[in-house]
Amino acid sequence: MHPHPHALAGVFVELSGGIEEESVDAGALLTLLAMRAGELLAAEEDPAGCAATALLMADEEDRHEPPVVAGSDPEVQRLEEDAAARGEGPGHDSRRTGAPLRDAPLDGPIARLRWPHYAPRCRALGYRRAAALPLRARGRTVGTLVVLRSDGDGPLRGDTLRLGQAMADMAGIALAREREVRRGLVRAEQLQSALTSRIVIEQAKGVLATRYAVPMEEAFERLRRHARSNRRRLADVADDVVAGRLEV
Protein backbone atom coordinates (compact mmCIF):
# COMPACT_ATOMS: atom_id res chain seq x y z
CA MET A 1 0.00 0.00 0.00
CA HIS A 2 1.65 3.21 -1.15
CA PRO A 3 1.08 6.50 0.64
CA HIS A 4 -1.10 9.03 -1.16
CA PRO A 5 0.98 11.55 -3.18
CA HIS A 6 -0.62 14.48 -1.34
CA ALA A 7 0.35 13.00 2.00
CA LEU A 8 3.90 12.55 0.71
CA ALA A 9 4.10 16.12 -0.56
CA GLY A 10 2.93 17.37 2.84
CA VAL A 11 5.59 15.34 4.62
CA PHE A 12 8.28 16.75 2.33
CA VAL A 13 7.25 20.33 3.04
CA GLU A 14 7.27 19.56 6.78
CA LEU A 15 10.73 18.01 6.55
CA SER A 16 12.16 20.92 4.61
CA GLY A 17 11.41 23.03 7.67
CA GLY A 18 8.75 24.85 5.66
CA ILE A 19 9.40 27.10 2.72
CA GLU A 20 9.62 30.23 4.81
CA GLU A 21 12.78 31.85 6.05
CA GLU A 22 12.61 31.14 9.74
CA SER A 23 14.98 28.74 11.35
CA VAL A 24 13.99 25.23 12.39
CA ASP A 25 14.64 23.41 15.62
CA ALA A 26 16.94 20.44 15.02
CA GLY A 27 15.36 18.25 17.72
CA ALA A 28 11.82 18.91 16.47
CA LEU A 29 12.86 18.22 12.90
CA LEU A 30 14.48 14.89 13.81
CA THR A 31 11.37 13.84 15.74
CA LEU A 32 9.29 14.69 12.70
CA LEU A 33 11.61 12.69 10.45
CA ALA A 34 11.51 9.66 12.76
CA MET A 35 7.71 9.78 13.11
CA ARG A 36 6.97 10.26 9.42
CA ALA A 37 9.56 7.74 8.31
CA GLY A 38 8.04 5.20 10.72
CA GLU A 39 4.57 5.79 9.27
CA LEU A 40 5.41 6.09 5.59
CA LEU A 41 7.93 3.29 5.36
CA ALA A 42 5.56 0.97 7.24
CA ALA A 43 2.91 1.81 4.63
CA GLU A 44 5.40 1.11 1.82
CA GLU A 45 6.63 -2.15 3.23
CA ASP A 46 3.21 -3.65 3.78
CA PRO A 47 2.70 -5.52 6.02
CA ALA A 48 5.96 -4.95 7.85
CA GLY A 49 5.84 -3.16 11.19
CA CYS A 50 8.39 -0.37 11.08
CA ALA A 51 9.95 1.92 13.58
CA ALA A 52 12.42 4.64 12.81
CA THR A 53 14.91 6.74 14.64
CA ALA A 54 16.80 9.76 13.45
CA LEU A 55 20.15 10.64 14.82
CA LEU A 56 22.13 13.84 14.47
CA MET A 57 25.74 13.89 15.53
CA ALA A 58 27.30 16.98 17.05
CA ASP A 59 29.35 19.27 14.85
CA GLU A 60 33.10 18.91 14.94
CA GLU A 61 33.30 22.33 16.52
CA ASP A 62 30.99 21.40 19.38
CA ARG A 63 32.12 17.84 19.94
CA HIS A 64 31.28 18.00 23.62
CA GLU A 65 27.58 18.24 22.76
CA PRO A 66 25.74 14.91 22.94
CA PRO A 67 24.13 13.71 19.72
CA VAL A 68 20.48 14.61 19.18
CA VAL A 69 18.37 11.45 19.00
CA ALA A 70 14.69 11.19 18.11
CA GLY A 71 12.55 8.07 17.80
CA SER A 72 9.14 7.17 16.44
CA ASP A 73 8.47 5.59 19.84
CA PRO A 74 10.10 6.11 23.25
CA GLU A 75 11.59 2.60 23.56
CA VAL A 76 13.30 2.88 20.20
CA GLN A 77 14.53 6.33 21.13
CA ARG A 78 16.13 5.01 24.33
CA LEU A 79 17.67 2.13 22.38
CA GLU A 80 19.24 4.55 19.91
CA GLU A 81 20.43 6.95 22.62
CA ASP A 82 22.25 4.09 24.26
CA ALA A 83 23.70 3.02 20.89
CA ALA A 84 24.91 6.56 20.22
CA ALA A 85 26.58 6.69 23.64
CA ARG A 86 28.33 3.36 22.95
CA GLY A 87 29.18 4.27 19.36
CA GLU A 88 27.59 1.16 17.88
CA GLY A 89 24.60 0.22 15.75
CA PRO A 90 23.63 0.68 12.11
CA GLY A 91 23.17 4.43 12.57
CA HIS A 92 26.67 4.87 13.86
CA ASP A 93 28.15 2.74 11.06
CA SER A 94 26.27 4.53 8.29
CA ARG A 95 27.15 7.91 9.70
CA ARG A 96 30.82 6.97 9.76
CA THR A 97 30.94 5.57 6.22
CA GLY A 98 28.44 8.02 4.74
CA ALA A 99 26.89 5.09 2.83
CA PRO A 100 23.46 3.57 3.30
CA LEU A 101 23.21 0.24 5.05
CA ARG A 102 20.49 -1.44 3.04
CA ASP A 103 19.74 -4.34 5.31
CA ALA A 104 21.15 -6.11 8.31
CA PRO A 105 19.45 -9.09 9.96
CA LEU A 106 19.73 -8.45 13.69
CA ASP A 107 20.33 -12.12 14.49
CA GLY A 108 23.04 -12.48 11.85
CA PRO A 109 26.72 -12.93 12.66
CA ILE A 110 27.68 -9.43 11.53
CA ALA A 111 25.12 -7.76 13.78
CA ARG A 112 26.13 -9.93 16.74
CA LEU A 113 29.79 -9.17 16.20
CA ARG A 114 29.59 -5.44 15.48
CA TRP A 115 26.71 -4.48 17.73
CA PRO A 116 27.01 -6.72 20.78
CA HIS A 117 24.74 -4.51 22.92
CA TYR A 118 22.49 -3.06 20.28
CA ALA A 119 21.47 -6.19 18.37
CA PRO A 120 20.13 -8.25 21.33
CA ARG A 121 18.27 -5.25 22.74
CA CYS A 122 16.72 -4.58 19.37
CA ARG A 123 15.60 -8.19 19.07
CA ALA A 124 14.12 -8.03 22.56
CA LEU A 125 11.95 -5.13 21.38
CA GLY A 126 10.67 -7.34 18.58
CA TYR A 127 12.72 -6.06 15.65
CA ARG A 128 14.39 -8.41 13.20
CA ARG A 129 16.06 -6.27 10.55
CA ALA A 130 17.68 -2.85 10.41
CA ALA A 131 18.58 -0.40 7.68
CA ALA A 132 20.30 2.95 7.95
CA LEU A 133 20.28 5.93 5.58
CA PRO A 134 22.74 8.82 5.84
CA LEU A 135 21.50 12.29 6.69
CA ARG A 136 23.52 14.72 4.61
CA ALA A 137 23.93 18.43 5.16
CA ARG A 138 26.24 20.60 3.08
CA GLY A 139 27.93 17.63 1.48
CA ARG A 140 28.73 15.96 4.80
CA THR A 141 27.06 13.11 6.60
CA VAL A 142 25.84 14.57 9.86
CA GLY A 143 23.54 11.81 11.08
CA THR A 144 21.41 8.88 10.03
CA LEU A 145 17.87 7.67 9.70
CA VAL A 146 17.60 4.14 11.11
CA VAL A 147 14.69 1.95 10.07
CA LEU A 148 13.85 -1.12 12.16
CA ARG A 149 11.39 -3.78 11.02
CA SER A 150 9.60 -6.43 13.03
CA ASP A 151 9.18 -8.74 10.03
CA GLY A 152 9.93 -8.90 6.33
CA ASP A 153 11.97 -11.62 4.71
CA GLY A 154 14.54 -9.61 2.87
CA PRO A 155 16.06 -6.18 2.51
CA LEU A 156 13.91 -3.06 2.21
CA ARG A 157 12.65 -2.65 -1.33
CA GLY A 158 14.51 -0.25 -3.59
CA ASP A 159 11.69 2.28 -3.79
CA THR A 160 11.26 2.20 0.00
CA LEU A 161 14.93 2.97 0.40
CA ARG A 162 14.68 5.77 -2.13
CA LEU A 163 11.70 7.26 -0.31
CA GLY A 164 13.53 7.04 3.02
CA GLN A 165 16.65 8.61 1.53
CA ALA A 166 14.61 11.43 -0.04
CA MET A 167 13.06 12.15 3.36
CA ALA A 168 16.50 12.13 5.00
CA ASP A 169 17.88 14.44 2.27
CA MET A 170 15.04 16.90 2.73
CA ALA A 171 15.63 16.98 6.48
CA GLY A 172 19.34 17.41 5.77
CA ILE A 173 18.66 20.61 3.81
CA ALA A 174 16.70 22.03 6.73
CA LEU A 175 19.43 21.00 9.18
CA ALA A 176 22.09 22.71 7.06
CA ARG A 177 20.01 25.86 7.18
CA GLU A 178 19.54 25.52 10.92
CA ARG A 179 23.30 25.22 11.42
CA GLU A 180 23.96 28.22 9.23
CA VAL A 181 21.49 30.31 11.19
CA ARG A 182 22.93 29.12 14.51
CA ARG A 183 26.48 29.93 13.40
CA GLY A 184 25.38 33.39 12.32
CA LEU A 185 23.77 33.99 15.69
CA VAL A 186 26.89 32.87 17.53
CA ARG A 187 29.03 35.23 15.44
CA ALA A 188 26.64 38.12 16.01
CA GLU A 189 26.64 37.51 19.76
CA GLN A 190 30.44 37.18 19.87
CA LEU A 191 30.84 40.46 18.01
CA GLN A 192 28.41 42.34 20.26
CA SER A 193 30.00 40.86 23.35
CA ALA A 194 33.54 41.79 22.22
CA LEU A 195 32.50 45.36 21.41
CA THR A 196 30.64 45.75 24.71
CA SER A 197 33.62 44.36 26.63
CA ARG A 198 35.92 46.86 24.97
CA ILE A 199 33.71 49.74 26.10
CA VAL A 200 33.66 48.53 29.71
CA ILE A 201 37.44 48.07 29.67
CA GLU A 202 37.94 51.64 28.37
CA GLN A 203 35.59 52.96 31.06
CA ALA A 204 37.46 51.03 33.75
CA LYS A 205 40.75 52.47 32.47
CA GLY A 206 39.24 55.94 32.85
CA VAL A 207 38.09 55.14 36.40
CA LEU A 208 41.50 53.83 37.47
CA ALA A 209 43.52 56.51 35.66
CA THR A 210 41.56 59.15 37.56
CA ARG A 211 41.49 57.36 40.90
CA TYR A 212 45.26 56.78 41.00
CA ALA A 213 46.27 59.74 38.79
CA VAL A 214 48.15 57.44 36.42
CA PRO A 215 48.32 57.28 32.61
CA MET A 216 45.84 55.09 30.72
CA GLU A 217 48.54 52.51 29.94
CA GLU A 218 49.24 52.02 33.61
CA ALA A 219 45.52 51.84 34.41
CA PHE A 220 45.21 49.09 31.82
CA GLU A 221 48.21 47.29 33.25
CA ARG A 222 46.56 47.27 36.70
CA LEU A 223 43.42 45.76 35.23
CA ARG A 224 45.37 43.15 33.31
CA ARG A 225 47.50 42.20 36.30
CA HIS A 226 44.46 41.75 38.50
CA ALA A 227 42.66 39.66 35.89
CA ARG A 228 45.71 37.48 35.34
CA SER A 229 46.56 36.87 38.97
CA ASN A 230 42.93 36.08 39.80
CA ARG A 231 42.36 34.10 36.59
CA ARG A 232 39.42 36.22 35.61
CA ARG A 233 38.32 37.66 32.31
CA LEU A 234 39.57 41.20 31.78
CA ALA A 235 36.05 42.36 30.89
CA ASP A 236 34.63 40.92 34.13
CA VAL A 237 37.27 42.70 36.21
CA ALA A 238 36.58 45.93 34.30
CA ASP A 239 32.87 45.52 34.89
CA ASP A 240 33.43 45.18 38.64
CA VAL A 241 35.69 48.24 38.68
CA VAL A 242 33.14 50.34 36.79
CA ALA A 243 30.32 49.17 39.09
CA GLY A 244 32.42 50.06 42.15
CA ARG A 245 32.54 46.45 43.36
CA LEU A 246 36.29 46.10 43.05
CA GLU A 247 39.41 48.11 43.81
CA VAL A 248 42.49 47.07 41.91
Binding site: Q203, G206, V207
Partner: peptide, 11 residues
Protein backbone atom coordinates in the same frame (compact mmCIF):
# COMPACT_ATOMS: atom_id res chain seq x y z
CA UNK B 1 34.77 58.97 25.09
CA UNK B 2 34.36 55.85 27.19
CA UNK B 3 37.60 56.51 29.05
CA UNK B 4 36.31 60.00 29.79
CA UNK B 5 33.00 58.57 31.02
CA UNK B 6 34.99 56.39 33.44
CA UNK B 7 37.11 59.36 34.53
CA UNK B 8 34.08 61.55 35.09
CA UNK B 9 32.24 58.82 36.99
CA UNK B 10 35.29 58.38 39.19
CA UNK B 11 35.39 62.10 40.00
Amino acid sequence: VHQAAGALASR
